[in-house]
């Protein structure tokens, strides 16, 4: 199954609900007026885009309707799609890990799927011929290290770990030394889930990030924020706050195989200009896909 099909499959629920609703609305309205736009705005909000982003999209669409003198409600759907592509951008954002070595720090709140995503990313990069190493810096959550260890064995990559409760910065330091010695191409660092409101945990993360900067100043850096597709408006605050600690270079959007719409990534792109780089669309090792903004919007509306 190709990327597009898989994505479409994962998004079918989203697509169905959004497009069905839009079609419904369009059928019930004979003309393009404010009531129509209100309804359309509500539909976007239901997809977790957030009020601000929804309003922005509707405003963009209204402008286009005026400029092109559109009077047929059914044409409006195409326009909304255009507005969305405009926001998401047409370029595909890849992981920037060339040339080696590269360090990927994976961060996010509790329970979004960081460790699982790392397993999948490691698998993807290994298949690309990279020598991958993992650092188990979630020393807080019970059995998090064991969980990552199982993934490392499943994928067949090295893991650097210490005991539960040890200093995550020390784990990272060790891992960097090991990655250097073993000439790894990519070091992926797991971190403990933390709510972005926990000041001291965020400071801990800042320290980890600083150590990577200090020990590997010339390495390529990716700071991937993992977001659960079911998350609502709080995801924007998460992205903002994590960026304050260590600039988020991309988002991994997980659990898109449920009914959640993941529309929040549009809000995040719109408000913070942070691109989505990968999406999780299933439970299997290879259920992680590069994110293609255009396909995403296409799949949402096709």
């Amino acid at each position: 199954m190709g990327f597009f099909d898989k994505l479409k499959d994962g998004l079918s629920k989203t697509r169905k609900s959004i497009t069905e609703k839009i079609d419904q609305v369009l059928v019930s309205f004979g003309k393009v007026d404010d009531d129509l736009f209100d309804e359309l705005e509500e539909i976007l909000v239901t997809a977790d885009l957030g009020v601000d982003t929804a309003v922005r999209i509707i405003e963009d669409t209204k402008k286009m309707v005026r400029e092109r003198k559109i009077t047929d409600p059914s044409k409006v759907k195409e326009l909304i799609k255009e507005a969305l592509v405009e926001i998401m951008g047409e370029e595909t954002e890849k992981l920037e890990i060339e040339p080696s070595p590269a360090v990927i720090m994976v961060i996010g709140v509790n329970g979004v799927g960081k460790t699982t995503s790392i397993g999948k990313i490691a698998n993807m990069l290994k298949n690309d011929g990279k020598k991958v190493m993992l650092a188990a810096a979630d020393t807080f959550r019970a059995a998090a290290i064991d969980q990552l260890e199982i993934w490392s064995k499943r994928v067949g990559v090295d893991l650097i770990k210490q005991d539960e409760g040890s200093d995550p910065a020390a784990v990272i330091y060790d891992a960097i030394q090991a990655a250097r010695a073993r000439k790894a191409d990519v070091l992926i660092c797991d971190t403990a889930g933390r709510l972005h409101t926990k000041k001291n945990l965020m400071e801990e993360l800042r320290k980890v990030s600083r150590i990577i900067d200090r020990e590997m100043p010339n390495a390529k850096r990716e700071n991937l924020l993992v977001l659960d597709a079911t998350t609502g408006q709080n995801a924007v605050t998460q992205a903002k706050t994590f960026s304050e600690v260590s600039e988020v270079t991309g988002i991994v959007l997980t659990k898109l195989d449920g009914t959640a719409k993941g529309g929040i990534v549009i809000a995040i792109k719109s408000e913070l200009n942070v691109p989505v780089k990968l999406i999780g669309v299933g439970e299997q090792l290879d259920d992680l896909q590069p994110f293609d903004a255009k396909d995403f919007v296409e799949a949402l509306f096709s």
Partner: peptide, 28 residues
């Protein structure tokens, strides 16, 4: 998860329909 967005209704409804939920616990 208390941070859940619009989809919370689908999740709760499905679990409730299937199992008959007796109570909810809100986390985070």
């Amino acid at each position: 998860d208390s941070m859940t967005g619009q989809d919370a209704v689908n999740v709760a409804d499905s679990f409730n329909q299937k199992l008959g939920v007796d109570g909810l616990i809100l986390t985070k």
